[in-house]
Write a protein that binds this DNA or RNA. Sequence first.
DNA 1: CTAGGTCAAATAATCGATTATTTCTAGAAA
DNA 2: TTTCTAGAAATAATCGATTATTTGACCTAG
Lengths: 220, 220
Amino acid sequence: MTDMLKQGSATAASRIYETLRQDLLNGRYRAGERLSITRLRETYQVGLSPLREALNRLAAYGLLRQENQRGFRVLELSREELADITEMRRQLEGRALELAVRHGDEEWESQLLAANHRLSLTDKRTFVVEWEQLHSRFHNALVAPCGSAWLLRFISQLHDQFDRYRRVAPRALELRHQLDAQHQELVDLALARDARRARELIEEHITLSSEVAMLSCRQA
Amino acid sequence: MTDMLKQGSATAASRIYETLRQDLLNGRYRAGERLSITRLRETYQVGLSPLREALNRLAAYGLLRQENQRGFRVLELSREELADITEMRRQLEGRALELAVRHGDEEWESQLLAANHRLSLTDKRTFVVEWEQLHSRFHNALVAPCGSAWLLRFISQLHDQFDRYRRVAPRALELRHQLDAQHQELVDLALARDARRARELIEEHITLSSEVAMLSCRQA
DNA sequence: CTAGGTCAAATAATCGATTATTTCTAGAAA
DNA sequence: TTTCTAGAAATAATCGATTATTTGACCTAG
């Protein structure tokens, strides 16, 4: 989806899709909230057709729920789903990182170092949106050379899902610091080509960030 | 998506989505073919808006590719992607079946027996479309109680992808017979609650059907 | 006072027409 | 002959208006 924006003229539908996706990830809309099409039209100053097309894509992607004749709703959050997403991320990202460590080349090492550097330079609390984007890019860079397009696709999708939970997570400074430290450790293990320990660490990393998110997630 | 049709009045968009999805799985359109919106409108006798919404959903789902200002194309087929899909299916369905065998209840056992019975009664060559549907349902039934909604979602998606390859597969009677026999074995292992061997068998099953499909898949 | 039903307002879905972009064709220049 | 460039035709994307469905308020019957 992202590369649509790069390659030449993006359509109104693609632009509003990306904007809405970002706003959904950043928690602009409450979980379970009904999205009035008329209101969205006014908010984003966009025509009806491209808006509806974007909403249809988001529903198929899993960020919205579509009920026939009753429009679109933001998906609900629940402890059960967070647990599900977390376990899936552990499986898929764990495997992907193992493969990436085996197959990644020098170019990958450079990208990884760069992504981690940019991330560590950005203050999480001052530049929330920017930090989230860099964080996503870092995790993407980690698994990028795993060799499986479908694995990467599912990982991105789960990452977007997970971000909605992360967005409501409490500060928990101690744990946050620990999570940040793990990013550096992940780079070290990747460069050392230690596939096994890299996998173990990313699984821990995912579990830990899930626990932070779980703190704020009301009982379902 | 399927339950939209059940619950009351389906919209035109939902109906055409499901129809198009089936036609894509059944190979009505060539791989890589450009889908002219005007022609689709005539073919399915449907309005422009619902049609475009359905196409947007299918693109987000991964059965179509959308190029801005240049409409929609059927996705290409390649040996590489088939290998990727196959490996993902092995991982995900293997794991799902293991979990399902552990957690499935008596109701599941009944559903499984029923699905397998219906499948074995239907002649593959006379009722192609019906057989494909029953085959999908059987595989769905197998993993249904795995406990993870996202795992099931990804498995269904990969199954749809795989079906496009299966559709172009050659007869290969000998192998087909072997694949059919495995369905019965899978039921037996499931009822015997042998999670490990069930997992091994479904992985073999997936690999074998992939090899059949690979026979007809031109070098990419 | 409540349950059920009807009508009006709100809103989602669809249609038909318009606009913008790409693709094709033909002609001109190198 | 080939390549580049209009111009025309085709087609994708968008808009504005219309239709269909749902929601909620109000009213009546029990």
